[in-house]
Nucleic acid binder design. Sequence first.
RNA 1: GCUUAUAUAGCGCAGCUGGUAGCGCAACUCAUUCGUAAUGAGUAGGUCGCCGGUUCGAGUCCGGCUAUGAGCUCCA
Length: 654
Amino acid sequence: MKITLKDGSVKEYQSPMSVQEIAYDISEGLGRATCAGIVDGETVDLRTVIEKDCNLSIATVADKEGLNTLRHTTSHILAQAVKRIFPEAKLAIGPSIENGFYYDIDREPFSREDLDKLEAEMKKIIKEALKIERFELPRDEAVKLMEEMNEPYKVELIHDLPEDAIISFYKQGEFTDLCAGPHLVSTKGVKAFKLISSSMAYWRGDSDKAKLQRIYGTAFNKKEELEAYLAHLEDIKKRDHNKLGREMELFTTVDVIGQGLPLMLPKGTRMINKLQRWIEDLEDNEWGYVRTKTPLLSKNDLFKISGHWDHYKDGMFVLGDEETDREVFALRPMTCPFQYYVYKNTQKSYRDLPYRMGETSTLFRNEDSGEMHGLTRVRQFTISEGHNVIRPDQVESELANCLNLAIFVLETLGLREDVTFRLSKWDPDNKEKYLGDDAYWENAQGALRKILLEKELVFTEADGEAAFYGPKIDIQARNVYGKEDTMITIQLDCAIAERFDMYYIDQSGAKVRPYIIHRTSLGCYERTLAWLIEKYAGKFPTWLCPEQVRVLPISDKYADYAEKVRAELARNGVDANVDSRSEKIGFKIRDARLNRLPYMLVVGEKEEADGTVSVRSRFAGDEGSKSLAEFTEQICREIRTKEIRKENPQEEGK
RNA sequence: GCUUAUAUAGCGCAGCUGGUAGCGCAACUCAUUCGUAAUGAGUAGGUCGCCGGUUCGAGUCCGGCUAUGAGCUCCA
């Protein structure tokens, strides 16, 4: 039989050679002891291909696929180790995932000691260099085999496979597992792996079904790669906003106050205020917004009109009981209907549109108790919310306006490269969750898609992620652990005006229903702060820093001059403090560095005599001696332009 | 909401099989007045998350609650 590889080389094999051996040979030829190959874009086990057709052209094994195969095999080795040490355990599924693999197992919880034992056993299995062999069985025999092995989850999986599915198994030593593959050809191919953690997972992700234990692990081709990955995990933890933000005294939580209700501390508040003032001035002065301030709660009547009472009541904090109380109130989960009444306060002409209303808006959402996390998922948050009331002919220009503002904000914060765009659509299979019909959704989604295409943005489309009243453009960011959150949203709503009887007078004097864009320019301040902490590892651009300059007098003798410097900077709107402790200069510098101060000004005899400051920064290290006026002008310009100066790696913490 | 782990001084931690608590940093006081990543000495600080139980005796064992972390999407 002849096998053509992608590089054009042809391999020929004599027929007595087993499929296993041929696959092994090809795999080694491709630089890795794997049996995975890509044929017509599909990842397959080379052994299956060889059996079917001897003259196939086999693409080279892509690195990513090779890694998936390696990890999938490692998960099987884990399962084998589990069965050896804990024979009573029942196996569920064990796929490879983005950064490793897992295996779901029905057993009591695993301790770290159990994981260590399993790791040791896995190493033994690898050393045994067990050949991994593939075989197929008809359905009834497959079920019988799994029943004999007392694996009820596997039996269920087989029953759920489609009629025409090939039911394949992989055998390594005494261990056999139901699996589609592909796999390495021998357990010895696993060189570097680690069991990371274990936790609970539901069978088939369904909370009504059995509770299984999931063991997470990872595997790499080389030991160095594994070590680099584990070091990366450690590094990531240092950037985690939930840890760093508390360490830097930006926010905290208190158990008697409750879950999802973080307290912004003075430094965190300072940062949020800087962001908020910037956004408010930007929107009002440059992007044509008017500002509103509307109540944080309302009678539930309002939410009945808006549809929230029917569609979002579980997510709201309701005050009072409809059965017994004359009036029931609810804390607002959004600002929309309040701003509609701002619009309705005076009659609007077609000339008044677009009518853009912005509000720094505090919202309340009753998230499930297990969903809260740091500053990214909270029960009370403040958002740069806004509603643009527009004429139907203004849909495109106004969507573009909102998107441009959002992108400008992201660019200014240095976050533009870190986001992905998503068109969030309704779920056509779950229509009762949404207002409006097919035509309404197709139109609205089409309008959003058009603007994304016109702006040449790369975006994904997601079913079932829309708001109940309309589709959205979501701007997504990932946290340090790779989890995605919505940062900015732009939503088109062509239906709500009817419910609130909003209209404008057109050229002919007729009343016309406007459309509404729900949008944020920066999104939620808490979540943005979390994102900034992780992006900059706490070393924020100067304009955002809660403390921008620290003046460090060499000794008490220069305290008066230090205070003079501080006062001059403060007069110019710079956040500056003096470190007047009677410590050595080295101590003060160390402390300021650990606090991630952008600028330190050392002042002593020489500086006082010359009216200068000795500048040391996070960006350039020693910037030399400058007159106070010169430094003030420099930092004021940096703050005004929101410059993001490049960090100097040599100034990294020791 | 579910599973699981954790909760000891402001922070980071120790406290073995039950005998009422320690370390480092920070804070405070005193001395030092110093030129670019830690000056020295001393002092003070804790109802061991909260409530209950077992026990002669609980930081330690048991139960409940609260909070925090991880996971609950990735289909053999």
